[in-house]
Structure formats: C-alpha cells, structure tokens
C-alpha cells in the first residue's frame, strides 16, 4: 500500500488501466510474464496488451496457439515453479475448455498437497454481452469460479479498480480470476499515478451513498447501477446507495450488510443468470444478516434465463439494462408495479 501523493491521478480508459497494470508489474518483477492468444504481434483481440510485445519481447509476452486447456495448464505448471504468469483468455466464454485445469488443478493444488506447493496464477478475461455476439460469446458465468474454494475472483468496474486489483492479483500468491468486461473497456476514469498503488482484494466499495435502497452489483452491472441510481433520484426522488462488490471471492459481505442495515431494502444486479448465481449468494447472506432490518424481500435482476439470442430485439429483451434495474428497484421500494410476485 502506498502512502505517497494519493491525490495525483491520470485520466485513462479501463483498457489503458489494465495495460498499465501489466506493464508496471512486468517492469517490477521478472517472474511476471503474459500468455495468451494474439496478445503479441496482434496486440490482443481487444487491444488490451497493445505495445507490450514490442516493449518486452516474446518471452515476457508469450503468444500461444488456440489451445486454452494446454496453455492455461502450462501457466499453472509455471506458477507451481514460482513464476507469476498472467494469462489472457480472449473472452470468458473460452475458459470452459480449460475448466478442468482451472477448477480441478489451479484451485486445488495448494490444499491437495498440504501447502507444499502454491500457484500464483492470474487469469484475466472479459465477460459480458450486448454486441449481438450470441449464445456462445456473450456470457457472464464468473460465478462458476466464485463457487470454487481455492480460487479468488475479482471483477472491477472502474479504471482505477481495474489497475489496482490486477496489480494486487499479480502480487498475490494464490490463483485469481480477474473478470473484465467488454462494455467496460472504453469507460474513462481517474487512476492513481503511484505505481505501487494496489486495491485490496476482498473489499467492496460504496460508490454512491444513499438511504432508501442498496443496489449491489459488480463489473459492468455496477456501472449500470450508478446510472440507475441517478435516474431514481432525478425521476423519483429516491436515494439509492450502490455497493460495487469488486471482489466476488472473497466477498465483502460486511460492507453489503452495513449498507442494507441502513437502507432496509436491497436489489442485487448481475449480468449473469440469477438462478444459483452471484445474486443468489448475496441475497442469502443479506437475509441471514439483515433479517430484522428488511422492509421488503431482497430481489434480483439478471440475464434472462435463455442462451443469448442474435436478433437485436431479442438480445435487448434478454440483457440486463437500466430500465429493468430501475423497474426492479421501484418494485422493491413499493413505488412501482410489483414485478416479483406471481
């Protein structure tokens, strides 16, 4: 943690913030190296690694064939040897073919061998939908990983958190999935200039204070929640508090619970499917910890429970959007139609 000039910041996009984090960590520690498809000459499918291959060369920025099970596993093996690989999976969707390596190997190595060997691995990958990429390329199933003991999962929504959490993940001794978001890459924000600034894993952020309802979200849904909170204020005079989880495992329930104890109402927003999802977990913990504080049932908004369709109108109907979140919030507040009973 840095104490130097916390106020000095630079404006940059989320994409630039992720790139800066990798560049800084590559410069800081020779054991850090990048791996992934098209991250070198091609500069990354979403240009996140642009310039790094030229600066650091093919050993530190290792281009891989399309072979996720192979190169994710290779990164795990290299991490067992004490290196700190940072793997890019082009989008979260493609990690499924490496699921055995992530869940059956990376997550279990330290425990299964009684602490005799570790796995300081980072996998970073964007989730999300909304560009007519259809069923196999629009998913947000980070809950699969947050469900798994042995893994840590973070999902920043702002440029500052994207840089700070990725740096924290790279410096951490355990395997971590860093969930980025295709819609978030172009978001601009202030990022601290201090190269040693990191954001602590396991801490949620109250990104907007309010008193009437708590919106709990992560990744791009947390950005949407902030927008919706403004609409609720402007259109309905509602004071909504937004908790950006930032970290899914470990989960900062304490911050969520403190907020709900104050607002007495909660809506969980998740770009993924709600059923058995992140929002299910949050809801369960809120009902246990805030049973006597709640003025309404805790509710959830998530992706329609279908694979993502192609047609623009159907995709719009499936996605979480600001209107759905607003309608859900008004329902929880008793200020709009009850959309959850029935």
């Amino acid at each position: 943690m840095s104490v130097a000039a916390p106020s000095a910041t630079t404006t940059m996009t989320y994409r630039e913030a992720v790139r800066l984090a990798m560049r800084e960590e590559l410069l800081r520690d020779e054991d850090v190296f990048l791996m992934g498809e098209e991250i070198g000459v091609f500069e990354g499918s979403y240009k996140v690694t642009a310039g790094l291959f030229r600066e650091f060369g093919p050993v530190r920025v290792r281009e891989t064939p399309i072979s996720e099970e192979g190169f994710v596993g290779a990164a795990i093996g290299a991490a067992m040897m004490g290196l700190r690989p940072v793997v890019e999976i082009m989008t979260l969707n493609f990690i499924l073919v490496a699921m055995d390596q992530v869940v059956n190997h990376a997550a279990k190595i330290r425990y299964m061998f009684g602490g005799e060997v570790g796995c300081p691995l980072v996998i970073r990958t964007p989730n999300g939908g909304g560009s007519q990429l259809t069923a196999q390329h629009s998913q947000s199933f980070e809950v699969f990983f947050a469900h798994t003991p042995g893994l840590k999962v973070v999902a920043p929504s702002t440029p500052a958190d994207a840089r700070g959490l990725l740096k924290a993940a790279i410096r951490d001794d355990d395997p971590i999935l860093v969930v980025e978001n295709l819609q978030s890459y172009k978001i601009k924000g202030e990022v601290p200039e201090d190269p040693d600034h990191v954001v602590e894993i396991g801490r949620a952020a109250v990104t907007r204070e309010g008193s009437d309802i708590t919106l709990v979200a992560h990744s791009f849904a947390a950005t949407r929640a902030l927008r919706v909170a403004e609409r609720l204020r402007a259109d309905h005079g509602v004071s909504a508090e937004v908790v950006d989880l930032r970290s899914l495992r470990p989960l900062d329930t304490e911050t969520v619970v403190r907020s709900v104890a104050k607002t007495n109402r909660a809506l969980c927003v998740d770009e993924g499917w709600s059923t058995y999802g992140i929002s299910a977990e949050i809801t369960s913990r809120i009902q246990r910890a805030c049973f006597d504080d709640l003025d309404a049932p805790v509710e959830r908004v998530g992706l329609a429970e279908v694979p993502m369709p192609y047609a623009k109108n159907l995709e719009r109907a499936a996605l979480v959007n600001d209107e759905k979140i607003e309608a859900a919030a008004l329902s929880v507040l008793g200020l709009g139609p009850d959309i959850f009973s029935s």
């Binding site: 330290r110 570790g118 840590k152 396991g202 470990p250 369960s284």
Partner: peptide, 18 residues
Amino acid sequence: HLHGDPASAEQFARMGPG
C-alpha cells in the same frame, strides 16, 4: 492450506455476516 498468500485471512475477514 486453502490459500497461501499471507494477506488471505485479511482478504476474507469481511465475508462473515450471513
């Protein structure tokens, strides 16, 4: 042995309620 990073206990410290 679930996690090895020395900061893990602190990272998980706020998970408790509920």
